[in-house]
Amino acid sequence: MSMDLSVPETWRVKGALYRLEAARCKACGRIHYPPMPACPYCGSRDLERVTLPSEGVLESYTVVYAVPEGSRHKAPVLLGLVRLGRVRVVAEITDADPSELRTGMEVEAVLRRIRSDREAGIIRYGVMFRPKLKGGSRGG
């Protein structure tokens, strides 16, 4: 029996991965994601947890064909640089064809399986982004 993915780590990062929990610095006011032990901008340790908006704009994207092991089933992997308010995050884009991606398009967070540890190990769920669903005035 062997496991590639850390079980405690899966548990530790769920705030960031499930709910886009970020950190806001009370000293300089800047927000960073994922949360770090101190503010990367000013070094202050006076941080509070905030939740990033679940909708944002695609600032850049790439279609990864050189996929890492264990991800062939979802190749090519669509990767996005997403702006959520004042913060950028990198995450996979799902439910889209490469040809429909455009910078500037609206995207929304969904929960997906990011990785699963072979047949028997832990499953890591987390946020991915998809093109905003049409009928989109609903659901904000």
Partner: peptide
């Protein structure tokens, strides 16, 4: 369901809609 979906991810989205 897509390759990154399962009953949990689909159930999550339905539940999020219900909660909203």
């Amino acid at each position: 369901a897509g390759p990154d979906e399962d009953s949990v991810t689909m159930g999550y989205e339905a539940a999020r809609n219900a909660l909203r």
